[in-house]
């Protein structure tokens, strides 16, 4: 991305930041699993990948996966459940057929790597390392597959092993996507940093369920799914805050995500410690929301006399004067 492109992408350089050495035109990141392989939302008139700093592509595995049986999505109060099951054409098809069709002058593209074994994570990461992709997100937190995913992410030692293995086969920025479905996310983050993670995406979905009372069966074909949307925002915000306590001493950036649906939501995450803010479910509500959030953040920065969005990151002042421990 040239500097001219970045100027075109935003109305103000206030929104431009550097994330793991990558220039983000705006702090927004479109989340993996919500925007296919980067070109799906461009169907909508007025939508542009230029309005976001980066686009995370659909979770990719070594071989093609068909994914879960329907129903895969269901609206719940303040959010939705999903259980897609990592449907993807496999890394070879992604690298050979999809990446050449992406316009890298519009935004940064981040691959999302998933697998059932450490060997699969290594293989997929290696393939993306030898591709034009800008960065690699390690998904150790997918709640919707039987093997891998959150089975790795819930165990700090396993998480670190996956990160360490991927680190050995790529020099591209490595972002670890952390699960909220674990005892102490900060412990996991610390281990992943030591294993070589350059950044974090916080959080993936929370595990959830919905029941059809007429059939007395789960609505979701996979029985359980990942809960996203505004309902999970307070949980995500706290997780970002907790992970930031570990990250700031290492200058490790965070993509804060979970229920962001407005500029105000995005600002909360940035203040809590996120250098970039992920959008997922909100796109389903309003696919043209990115520009609105960008403008909202920009207006806030102007109103508060803050030079750039980076200056706001982690500017939270705690009421109790020390990092959050326990609410009781």
């Amino acid at each position: 991305m040239t500097s001219d492109d970045i100027e075109n992408a935003t109305e103000s350089s206030r929104l431009t930041s550097v994330f793991c050495g990558m220039t983000f035109g705006t702090p927004l990141v479109l989340l993996s699993g919500c925007v296919g392989f980067g070109e799906e939302y461009t169907r909508i008139q007025g939508f542009s990948n230029r309005d976001v700093g980066a686009v995370c592509l659909k979770g990719t595995t070594g071989e093609a996966r068909a994914g879960n049986s329907p129903h895969r999505v269901y609206e719940t109060p303040g959010g939705m459940l999903n259980a897609i099951g990592l449907q993807n054409p496999g890394v070879d098809a992604v690298v050979r057929q999809i990446l050449p069709g992406l316009d890298f002058s519009e935004t940064r593209f981040i691959a999302n790597v998933s697998g059932s074994s450490i060997e699969e994570y290594i293989e997929v990461t290696r393939r993306f390392d030898d591709s034009p992709i800008d960065a690699i997100e390690i998904n150790i937190s997918c709640p919707n597959v039987k093997e891998g995913g959150v089975a790795f992410g819930n165990d700090p030692a396993m998480s670190a092993r996956v990160v360490e293995a991927c680190r050995k086969v790529t020099d591209k920025p490595l972002i670890t996507k952390l699960s909220p479905n674990q005892t102490d996310i900060a412990v996991n983050a610390r281990g992943c940093i030591e294993a070589g993670s350059d950044a974090f995406a916080v959080i993936n979905t929370l595990m959830g369920m919905a029941v059809d009372i007429e059939t007395r069966r789960p609505v979701i074909g996979n029985d359980q799914g990942g809960l996203s949307g505004p309902a999970i925002k307070p949980v995500a915000l706290l997780k970002v805050h907790q992970v930031y306590q570990v990250c700031r001493e290492h200058a490790i950036p965070i993509i804060g995500q979970g229920g962001v649906a407005s500029a105000e939501d995005a600002l909360e995450f940035i203040i809590a410690g996120a250098s970039a803010v992920g959008l997922g479910t909100a796109l389903f509500y309003d696919p043209l929301i990115c520009r609105k959030i960008n403008h909202g953040i920009e207006r806030y920065l102007l109103r508060h006399g803050v030079e750039t969005v980076s200056d706001l990151v982690g500017s939270l002042t705690l009421n109790r004067g020390r990092p959050f421990q326990c609410g009781c």
Binding site: G33, C34, V35, G36, E40, Y41, R43, I44, K58, A66, G67, S69, P70, H71, R72, V73, Y74, M80, N82, I84, Q87, L283, F284, P287
Partner: peptide
């Protein structure tokens, strides 16, 4: 028809099983 989220191909939430000469696919 199927339950649908994004409606523009981004989320793969509304899939159905389709049988092609290469085998079933979503």
């Amino acid at each position: 028809e199927e339950y649908m989220a994004c409606g523009v191909g981004g989320c793969a939430g509304c899939v159905v099983e389709i049988h092609t000469p290469q085998g079933p696919t979503m």
